[in-house]
């Protein structure tokens, strides 16, 4: 079984294409031994296609895999990697790993919360940013670190953090 690339990016595919891709993927998994065990892989795939896990998609997964929706819901809500709401245009993951914490991630987080006026796990009202906690991003050498979409920004200060946000805002205006 091949694994999926896991960056949660919404592809530009049409709804029908996405659904077809998901169904093909599920069908592949169902040919294996213990087909039910591929639920998490399938949810990864769904999130990759849709950016999050919409209820209709979970219904579809239930239908295709023959797994009760309650079970899927239990799994989808257990794992922090799965998002049940659409993400912002830019996903900011702030590393709250130990190295980053010791080097001031707490202040960066505060700066982010103040600047974006949202809490961790939320999306700004304009849909531009969502804020997620991350454990070690593996860039401890650059601590404190945030990842915006798939780019790492390191050695941050609260001030630089705010500047960075403003850069993204400026880009969006263009």
């Amino acid at each position: 079984m091949a694994t999926t690339e896991t960056t949660a990016k919404t592809t530009s595919a049409t709804a029908a294409e996405r659904l077809a891709q998901l169904k093909t993927y599920i069908a592949e998994t169902q040919e294996n031994e213990h087909p039910d065990s591929f639920l998490i892989a399938v949810l990864h795939k769904a999130q990759e296609l849709y950016g999050y896990l919409p209820v209709e998609v979970m219904d579809e997964v239930a239908e295709q895999m023959g797994i009760p929706t309650a079970h899927i819901w239990g799994v989808a809500t257990f794992y922090h990697y799965f998002s049940l709401t659409p993400p912002g245009q830019h996903v900011i993951s702030i590393c709250l790993g130990t190295a980053c914490y010791v080097r001031g991630a707490g202040q960066i987080l505060q700066a982010l919360k103040d600047e974006l006026k949202i809490d961790v796990g939320e999306v700004t009202p304009d849909g531009m940013f969502s804020l997620q906690p991350a454990r070690c991003l593996g860039a401890c050498g650059l601590a404190p670190v945030v990842m915006i979409d798939d780019k790492i920004h390191g050695e941050l200060t609260p001030k630089r953090m705010v500047q960075l946000i403003n850069q993204y805002r400026k880009q969006a205006k263009k």
Binding site: T69, A70, W73, F78
Partner: peptide, 20 residues
């Protein structure tokens, strides 16, 4: 029937039906 599941985790765990 599989109506119920535990959803979320840790201190936030709660028993509920699918999609609450």
């Amino acid at each position: 029937v599989h109506c119920l599941t535990q959803a979320h985790r840790g201190f936030n765990t709660v028993v509920m039906p699918a999609y609450n």
